[in-house]
Design a protein around this nucleic acid. Structure first.
Length: 221
DNA sequence: CTGACGATTCACT
DNA sequence: GTGAATCGTCAGC
């Protein structure tokens, strides 16, 4: 298991990074408690030109400031007053790209995940859905700003690999307010993986496997 | 200071 | 399919 390095996070194409995150291992380790999950579903948020992004239009607030930090930083925020959503900041400082981790396949420390989620046995929902990912891994908003090159929260890779044909791209979940940008195929997941969330909405959408080639890059508003 | 609301989940119909 | 839970964040006054 090798830790994902800074170069991976600092790349400029957030859609490419989102694709590359599929199959990677997410690790949390504190108080001697380690949990590992394999990333099976993500969503890309393309910074200031993306109406679904918290940083749309260059918006800077105390909360979103983290997104303007260096790639390889955790951005965690509270949603609906209940759910802690874990994102990975990408690109260079001042370019607020991010990738939301939406689902994990539990790999290690599963007893801890069960304990944290209050579940009795493993099922498809253990770390499926962005709120459940954080709950199972023990991530809270206080971890926002944490360095992903550190020892507490980081990503790693092993021998696992995916073919491009195993990656499905669809529109993102819960971003209807983003008008036309709600339709962009910025959600990626592993085909046929049982831990992927919101399956009902799939209906085998028009699969856009090369979505990242059409990424908008203009930096004006 | 106030009010509206969200990158969600779960139980229930 | 519908609605409740629940609170930090943010715009507006």
């Amino acid at each position: 298991m090798e830790k994902v390095d800074l170069g991976f996070y600092e790349r400029t194409n957030v859609l490419k990074i989102a694709n590359d995150l599929l199959g990677k291992l997410m690790v949390t380790s504190w108080n001697g408690k380690q949990s590992i999950g394999r990333i099976v579903e993500v969503e890309a948020y393309n910074g200031i030109v993306d109406k679904a992004s918290h940083a749309f239009g260059g918006r800077r607030t105390s909360r979103t400031e983290i997104m303007y930090g260096r790639g390889g930083t955790a951005y965690v925020y509270l949603c609906y007053g209940i759910h802690h959503l874990f994102n990975i900041v990408t690109n260079k400082r001042d370019i607020p790209h991010a990738v939301l981790i939406r689902a994990l396949e539990p790999v290690e420390g599963i007893d801890l995940m069960l304990q944290r989620t209050g579940k009795v046995k493993v099922d498809h929902s253990l770390a499926s859905g962005p709120g459940n990912v954080s709950k199972a891994m023990g991530i809270l908003t206080r971890h926002s700003g944490e360095d992903l090159l550190g020892k507490q929260i980081f990503l790693a890779y092993d021998n696992f690999s995916l073919r491009k044909s195993e990656i499905i791209a669809t529109s993102r979940i819960g971003v209807d307010y983003a008008a036309e940008d709600a339709l962009l195929p910025y959600r990626f997941f592993i085909w046929n993986n049982v831990y992927v969330s919101a399956k009902k909405s799939l209906e085998v959408v028009g699969v856009e496997k090369r979505a990242y080639k059409s990424i908008p890059s203009k930096q004006s508003i």
